[in-house]
């Protein structure tokens, strides 16, 4: 893609605005139960439908994000690497660890750390989409998984960039710690999506107009009861995997980094 230099500054601003908006939309799509928590929304007959509409919101955000891929220069090597890594992550998703947890984060985190935040965002989007296709899991939940995973890829890319100057061992340690934390963040985000699906008036269920504090308490109890153990096992698995494999995998990925941004020098003999 060619872009005239004069428009570069405006388009950078535009990209910033766009990503800011995507972030706001994503917060709305995930966090709407807390919006309905205010007393102002009391008695709203829409609280039952909100999750359907939030699915649409998530889909629009994921769509715009995917449209964004076209803007930067994307070369075939990036597409191919995204493809094979997405396949690997998709396979990892099928493999369930002894504790019931899942080890799909570690490769995303390492790839994002090796190739940067933008690559992390793209890999997050495509890996979730690919794994949904592989496991027959395409549905209204997919945009949310994609957004949450892209968020994780972005954060991992930033952690990777921030620790790039440190020694590999320290960097791997940071990434492992990040992976441990983010396994819970990811679990909490995905639960936030499925939580309001069932509004049965239970003590851990979502109900409109409970007030922020009560909503948070219900959600917290729900999360601890349903997913904490699962997420903890996933977090531990990712921590261990990154600690054990982080160094060699980062090295393996970085050896191909030059191919993702081919630089050509033309000289005369």
């Amino acid at each position: 893609m060619t872009r005239t230099p004069s428009s570069a500054a405006t388009s950078r601003l535009q990209v910033a605005i766009l990503y800011g908006l995507i972030a706001i939309i994503a917060i709305l799509a995930f966090g709407w139960p807390f919006l309905f928590a205010s007393q102002a929304a009391a008695g709203s007959e829409h609280s039952g439908d909100a999750w359907l509409w939030s699915a649409l919101l998530g889909a629009v955000a994921a769509c715009v994000m995917t449209l964004e891929i076209r803007r930067g220069t994307i070369v075939s090597a990036q597409i191919a690497v995204l493809g094979v890594l997405s396949a690997c992550i998709g396979i990892l998703r099928i493999v369930t660890l002894p504790g019931g947890g899942n080890s799909l984060y570690f490769l995303l985190i390492l790839a994002a750390a090796a190739f940067g935040p933008r690559f992390g965002v793209l890999l997050g989007l495509t890996a979730m989409a690919a794994s949904a296709v592989i496991t027959a899991g395409v549905g209204p939940w997919l945009p949310f998984q994609m957004l949450a995973f892209a968020f994780m890829g972005w954060c991992a890319g930033i952690v990777g960039a921030a620790t790039a100057r440190l020694s590999t061992r320290v960097q791997v340690g940071c990434l492992a710690a990040f992976g441990w934390c983010f396994a819970f963040v990811f679990g909490a985000l995905m639960n936030l999506w499925s939580w309001p699906l069932i509004q049965d008036g239970g003590a851990t269920s979502y109900a409109p107009a409970l007030g922020i504090a009560a909503t948070a308490r219900h959600y917290w109890a729900y999360y601890v009861a349903t997913s904490f153990a699962w997420d903890a096992s996933g977090a531990l698995a990712n921590f261990v995997l990154i600690m054990l494999l982080g160094g060699p995998i980062l090295a393996a990925l970085r050896r191909h980094a030059a191919r993702l941004r081919p630089a050509v020098i033309w000289t005369q003999p």
Partner: peptide, 15 residues
Amino acid sequence: LHDAALVVAIAVAFV
């Protein structure tokens, strides 16, 4: 959105 679809197609073919 072809690029994204292509990535997913490559992933499926690579499994």
